[in-house]
Design a protein around this nucleic acid. Structure first.
Lengths: 150, 150
DNA sequence: TTCATATTTGTAATCATTTTAATTATGTAA
DNA sequence: TTACATAATTAAAATGATTACAAATATGAA
């Protein structure tokens, strides 16, 4: 998490992105919310509290710019909407079909390392998506069984 | 590729899906088009030639039913629309950012094998997506360079 | 044949995202 | 500082994929 605006500003300047207030606040949100893999909507709704005039378009445009510069990653795991990730280090994702949470998965796999050629194709991005029932939902399901069979 | 309607019919009956004409034709299309990872649109447009009254809704509903029974897989790699895959055996996908093609990638990786627990989560699906420039587009790019520097 | 049910169809609605054009902010030259 | 060019933000409309809904059609049993 990056708490001070000055370092956020430096990050944007280094990428040639003019550090406007909305861009800084969006980057700040991303840096403070690394576990929820937010949608544009989630970012927009939160920022409305600080910037009542902010628009969805700005959030979309800003995330596109961040994505292009590699400041964030994009996750297509749900199939319905894009999720964004401040953590651009190599890792995979788990989508819980029960609660909808997207959970980081640390993976060490020959295919998750480095961007090399695969079958002659130049690989620039590697995405590993797992889907199923998360640990917590599994626990809840077990508890429900216990309750109904006491 | 499954060429005769009788075996397609058996596949649907085995899953408890009533083998109507449109469902058989959709399954036939899927079995004959295993390399293009089609969108609903692509399936619909092709089937219009055989069934001029078919509707998009039927294609959507049918694919949802197939998906639920595991007759096809769903690929979210593009982030814009769902792609469907008749090949449900364990394999990964490569999206070419240049030509948009989705190419099957045979992968042997500890995480691509079997559906086990990961960090306590119950894994039911594993998706490996690679993005970059495909072999053919790489070749085309090299040729363009040659042409402009003869 | 008749009726109940499942399936298909067409249309409208929804949701995420993009496009467009107008407004606002910013930086620079006079 | 003012005037102007440019960039950024905004609101509204358009688009595209998907879902919801209701009417029409097909199917199968009594």
């Amino acid at each position: 998490m990056i708490t001070n605006m000055k370092s956020l500003k430096i990050i944007l300047e280094k990428e040639g992105i003019k550090p406007t207030y909305q861009r800084l606040k969006i980057l700040e949100y991303m840096s403070r919310n690394t576990v929820n893999h937010p949608t544009v909507e989630m970012i927009y709704e939160r920022l409305l509290k600080d910037i009542p005039t902010i628009s969805m378009t700005t959030v979309y445009n800003t995330l596109s710019a961040f994505l292009e510069k590699g400041l964030v990653g994009a996750i297509t795991i749900t199939g319905t909407e894009m999720r964004y990730d401040f953590n651009t280090a190599s890792h995979h994702h788990f989508l819980c079909k029960q609660c909808g949470r997207i959970i980081d998965i640390e993976v060490t796999c020959p295919f998750s390392e480095g961007k090399k050629l695969q079958h002659g194709h130049r690989v620039e991005e590697i995405h590993g998506y797992f889907k199923g029932i998360c640990k917590d939902c599994l626990k809840d399901m077990k508890n429900s069984v216990k309750e109904s069979n006491p």
